[in-house]
Amino acid sequence: MIKISDLEKIYRTEEVETVALNKLSFNVKEGEFVAVMGPSGCGKSTLLNILGLLDDPDDGSFLFNGIEVAHFNERKRADLRKRNIGFVFQSFNLIDELTVFENVELPLIYLGVKGDERKQRVEKVLDKMQIMHRRNHYPQQLSGGQQQRVAVARAVVNNPKLILADEPTGNLDSSNGNEVMQLLTELNEQGTTIIMVTHSEHDARYSHRIIRMLDGQTVTENILV
């Protein structure tokens, strides 16, 4: 599903040049659950941003489902993103002015799904995440665990092929964290590909494979299953 080769990303300021990704290559197959680990500044987040089509690489190739997307323009990236990719962030990133229901509904609106169908699909996913009773609440009225469940619901509501999770349990206590990992595992079992950046060895063990990075390169790959 994902094939990256010789990916490079360099951040430049006036004085300093920081190599975030240094000729990075790896593949992810459809249905895989991959954890990316490494110390701060090793390039994990840069990698995730490029995989999520939020950022483009300076060099190298990125094939998504066999299509070269490394140099797509913003509109094409936005289009590909909204159809195929769901995001889960450490800090949830829900919109404060929208209710739980409206937050989850948002990706479907951008996809152009009709109102009735949207309602059906949002309710279904809220039900699945067990936050249906909170549908009319605003994010700041929810606990961290509940907020992250809403964020996951929002990430999966448009049935993406790929979910990118950036330290999804980072702001949660362990029981809420485990619940979220359980959710991701279930999604993976239903066929969604997941790539997760994490600092937690515990969380990484939910995955099939751990890619360890250092200075913009992969150093080891541990296959867990």
Binding site: R75, A78, N93, I95, D96, L106, P107
Partner: peptide, 16 residues
């Protein structure tokens, strides 16, 4: 800003 970021991640283009 965060709202803009989230909307962009969820697939909103600049024109939207």
């Amino acid at each position: 800003a965060r709202e803009v970021g989230v909307r962009k991640v969820l697939g909103a283009g600049k024109s939207k």
